[in-house]
């Protein structure tokens, strides 16, 4: 795939936060560490990992909401190409229209004192995208209809709506500026299962209809499996495995990905899946293990894993990359 087919291209991208204020207790926290990935245009790209894996920070880096401290990230659509590391001024304001975020919690994301119409219209007014009130109203009604909101509800306040309806309002607000790239950060995590499927279907439909590129951040593998075309798995700021969804779910190669699968509680009461349980928890990002970051919890770790950090390499399928010293040997073991 040539670079022109990718909307977002990241090369050795790192995000490091400075923590501690004193002269002597300065420490740094590497939230995203040397990540290289491509998000193809028009794809539904999934990013999974536990809390503390850096998935939210990576999403924010692509939105230029946290400073990029190493490597490069490039945004490139049919009209413009921006280097996200140095983007500023008028170009940055233009990028804000092209890249948008849908938040996790629809209860916290909407101002309780604004009507639904004002909430959806606010980005248009802030970015100066419409000239008259009539034009704004027109845009708001269009996008609200696309997000399956009842137009009579535009005059109400958010408290009158259920979680699913609020999330549809958040989606309308994110899409009103006609973005090309949307980061959805745990956008269905706070919803009930019965509603979750509805919001996921809506996101998929909007993506097809509006030609959007989605980066879908989630900790829920089964949700990602059903919505995304391509999935990347993160652990402690590193990309450990990336593959087309079907390939990843049929033939996971990294021990961490396998462990994530086996941790999903099965609907079959007789299938307890205890075999692949991970012990311990994700280490603190301020005090990261040497070598392979996963070696402290990996059931297959060797001396080499403790010393040398594995690099992302091609695995056995097209577009499938894995960062593990032993993935070839482990292939013969039952997943």
């Amino acid at each position: 795939m040539s670079d022109q087919d990718n909307l977002i291209t990241a090369r050795n991208l790192s995000v490091t936060f400075q923590i501690g204020k004193g002269l002597f207790n300065k420490a740094s926290l590497k939230a995203v560490d040397n990540v290289t990935l491509d998000i193809p245009k028009g794809s539904f790209f999934g990013l999974v990992g536990e809390s503390g894996s850096g998935k939210t920070t990576l999403g924010r880096a692509f939105l230029k909401a946290v400073p990029i401290t190493g490597g490069t990230a490039t945004y490139s659509d049919d009209e413009v190409t921006y280097d996200l590391g140095t983007l500023a001024g008028r170009e940055l304001r233009d990028y804000r229209k092209r890249a948008q975020l849908i938040f996790q919690d629809p209860y916290a994301a909407l101002s309780p004192r604004m009507t639904v119409r004002d909430i959806i219209a606010e980005p248009l007014e802030v970015m100066g995208l419409t000239k008259t009130r009539a034009e704004t109203d027109q845009r708001v009604r269009e996008i609200a209809a696309k997000c399956r909101l009842n137009l009579e509800h535009l005059r109400r306040f958010p408290h009158a709506f259920s979680g699913g309806q609020r999330q549809r309002i958040s989606i309308a607000r994110a899409l009103v500026s006609d973005p090309k790239f949307v980061v959805a950060d745990e956008s269905v995590a706070a919803l009930d299962v019965s509603i979750q499927a509805d919001v996921l279907n809506l996101l998929k439909d909007l993506q097809r209809e509006l030609g959007l590129t989605f980066m879908f951040i989630s900790h829920d593998l089964s949700v990602v499996a059903h919505t995304c075309d391509h999935v990347a798995v993160m652990y402690l700021g590193r990309l450990v495995e990336t593959a087309p969804t079907r390939q990843l779910f049929e033939a996971p190669r990294h021990p961490y990905t396998k462990a994530l699968f086996s941790a999903i509680p099965s609907l079959d009461p007789d299938d307890t899946g205890r075999a692949q349980r991970l012990v311990g928890e994700i280490p603190s990002p301020t005090n990261q293990p040497t070598g392979c970051k996963f070696h402290t919890r990996c059931p297959h770790a060797t001396e080499q894993c403790k010393r040398e950090e594995p690099q992302l390499e091609h695995a056995d399928g097209p577009g499938h990359e894995v960062s593990c010293h032993r993935w070839r040997e482990l292939m013969s073991e039952p997943a």
Partner: peptide, 24 residues
């Protein structure tokens, strides 16, 4: 039945997600 159908299942990635229609 609706709750169970709305759950994304790993065994069958092609089946569409069927929400329980409407809101509580």
């Amino acid at each position: 039945q609706g709750l169970l159908a709305a759950l994304p299942k790993l065994e069958d990635l092609d089946s569409p997600l069927t929400p329980v229609p409407g809101d509580i």
